[in-house]
Amino acid sequence: MFEKELEEKLKDHINYFPRKEQAILMCLHEIQNHYGYIPKESLKPLSDMIGLPLNHVEGVVAFYDMFDTESSARHRIRVCVSIVCHFMQKDKLISALKEKLGIDMGEVTEDGRFKLIPVQCIGGCSEAPLFMIDEDTYKFEGEEKLDEILAKYT
């Protein structure tokens, strides 16, 4: 079962919608925010709460890109590698991040602080190149500014 605090949040999502199963993506976001990823063991209790078969829940988790069952990280950095950012020097942003964190795309820093994830368009292309840390969206304004931003996430 889930810890009390998380369980309450999940219940809120489930009670919010006209039908319970509609809350599945909301619950998965909530679980990922809580644990830093989606532990496989969390899927059975979730399927019980929502009233969907476990294989349905597993199928949903696998389908949607934002959900990660692989590796835990306290913060997820999503870097846009799509068309506009690509032509607006996304490589500078990516190499700065790789160098500062000492990891490659798809990897987690040794201290479990950050995971670096390539994503398709984030939808703020006038400010490209873009990246998100957890729920925050940022544009790349040079390495100094990048240091300041990263320092906010411990």
Partner: peptide, 10 residues
């Protein structure tokens, strides 16, 4: 009105 979030699928 209910608001639902997607999960990153175009």
């Amino acid at each position: 009105i209910y608001v639902a979030r997607g999960g990153g699928a175009y």
